[in-house]
Each structure stands twice: as structure tokens, then as C-alpha cells.
């Protein structure tokens, strides 16, 4: 699999720091890569860190929501961390509805939410 995004084990959760811009092709790899890892490790939580991403446009936000929904089917709760106030305001202004996936300010808060 040609995947450029690390998937790290952190307690009972998986941590996925996204550091590079995703293309359509990579998104599919990332989706399947994350889901396989959830199955393999029986992770109860998935934390996706977007703090290194500059712009979360509707394409990227939709990817995050879709990954969260698929993870939920495997009994794994997703929390997105690293959304900046500017990102949040921009998505809201565009009319994007952030539905189905929780957010937290940082990894620490996400772990508190999911349970270590």
C-alpha cells in the first residue's frame, strides 16, 4: 500500500497525524489502512490530528467525516484534533455542517473523551 500517513498505537486508541495534503488516491488508501488497523488492534478510539494542515476545505472535511463514520461501524469512536478557530469559522461560514464526528482541542482531551 502506498500510504504516506503514519498510524500510531496510543493506549487503546490509534493516532493518525496528517502532515501532508491528501489526494483522492491517497484518501482511499488512508481509509482502508485505518480501518484495517482498527480491526487488527481492536482500537476503541481513533484520533486524527490535523494541526499540521493549513487549510481544511470541504473536500478534506468530508474525508474526515467519512473515515469517522466507517470507524463507527467497527465500534471505534473518532475524535478530530487540531482544528483551529479560523478553520472552524471558515467551514461554518461556507455552510459546512460538521456532523457525526467529535472534535477535541488536543490529543490529551481526545484521550480523556475516548478513555485510555
Amino acid at each position: 500500500m502506498n500510504i504516506h500517513v503514519p498510524i500510531l498505537k496510543l493506549g487503546k486508541s490509534l493516532l493518525v497525524p496528517i502532515e501532508i495534503e491528501l489526494t483522492d488516491e491517497m484518501v482511499e488508501d488512508l481509509h482502508i489502512g485505518i480501518l484495517k488497523e482498527i480491526e487488527k488492534t481492536n482500537a476503541k478510539g481513533l484520533i486524527i490530528d490535523v494541526s499540521l494542515i493549513e487549510v481544511v476545505d470541504s473536500f478534506f472535511a468530508r474525508i474526515l467525516i467519512n473515515i469517522g463514520r466507517a470507524a463507527k461501524c467497527l465500534n471505534c469512536n473518532t475524535v478530530i484534533v487540531g482544528v483551529t478557530p479560523e478553520m472552524a469559522l471558515t467551514l461554518t461560514k461556507m455552510g459546512f455542517e460538521w456532523r457525526g464526528v467529535e472534535t477535541a482541542l488536543d490529543v490529551e482531551q481526545a484521550l480523556d473523551r475516548i478513555g485510555r
Binding site: E54, V55, D57, S58, F59, E86, T90
Partner: peptide, 27 residues
């Protein structure tokens, strides 16, 4: 991003708006 920073007085939010619209429309 560099073009905006060199030529305009935009806040971080205003720059984010421009770069997000750019991202949507180039996509």
C-alpha cells in the same frame, strides 16, 4: 499565500477564507 502576505493586510482568518475558496475552486 505568499502573494497575499506580500501585498495585502489580511488577518489570519481573511487569508484562510481566500486560501479555502482557492482550494475549493481549483479542485
Amino acid at each position: 499565500r505568499v502573494f497575499i502576505m506580500n501585498n495585502l493586510h489580511f488577518s489570519l482568518l481573511e487569508r484562510m477564507h481566500a486560501l479555502t475558496a482557492l482550494s475549493e475552486l481549483t479542485r
